[in-house]
């Protein structure tokens, strides 16, 4: 504006045609305006866009399970050398404002009644639940026909690693585990 602002035109220029005639474009000014629009627009997009990413990923980043030791059951119910026993425990999971009870199932084995192996029943391939098959002395996953050995090692099929183990401790003849 400014410099080229003449006296009000009375020639009845139709709206849609600038008062300077159709071709009066100052390339420097145009460049400057385009750059300004780009800079301001970019700043605003970033100012909303970056928080938006933090916002969208928020509840996925901060979900929490239970802290510390969780009681699984009494040691006495696990017989040395016997088939893995499936023991269930309920834990609290907080996702966003939702607090939900969740059941975890753990296969427990012991050879001597002192040392235990706590295996997750979640297949390490794509997350189906495995089942103990006595006849084959292994865990079978029905989804893609995987087999895991008694201690979780992969015997057959696509799983990339053994079944996950839980940390555990024994106190007053009770078995405790920690959420992975």
């Amino acid at each position: 504006m400014g410099a080229d602002e003449g006296p009000p035109s009375t020639s009845g220029v139709p709206s849609g045609v600038g008062a300077d005639g159709p071709d009066a474009v100052d390339p420097g000014r145009r460049k400057f305006l385009i750059a300004t629009i780009g800079a301001v627009g970019g700043t605003i997009t970033a100012a909303v866009g970056v928080p938006a990413i933090a916002f969208v990923t928020g509840s996925a980043r901060t979900a929490t399970g239970e802290e510390g030791w969780i009681r699984l059951g009494s040691v006495g119910s696990i017989e040395p050398g016997a088939a893995p026993t499936l023991v269930k425990a309920t834990i609290e999971r907080r996702t966003g404002y939702l607090v939900e009870e969740q059941e975890v199932s753990i296969f427990v084995t012991t050879e001597n009644g002192q040392d235990f192996v706590l295996l997750s029943n979640v297949c390490t391939h794509l997350g189906c639940r495995v089942r103990w098959v006595e006849a084959e002395a292994g865990f079978h996953c029905p989804c893609h026909n995987a087999m895991f050995g008694r201690n979780g090692e992969v015997l057959a099929g696509p799983p990339p690693r053994p079944l996950d183990r839980y940390e555990y401790k024994v106190e007053d003849a009770q078995l405790f585990f920690k959420e992975a």
């Binding site: 928080p51 938006a52 933090a54 916002f55 990923t57 928020g58 509840s59 980043r61 901060t62 966003g96 404002y97």
Partner: peptide
């Protein structure tokens, strides 16, 4: 809404 405002990252802003 309370969760969005008080806990979620940048929830207060959005």
């Amino acid at each position: 809404v309370t969760y969005i405002t008080n806990e979620l990252s940048f929830g207060w802003l959005i």
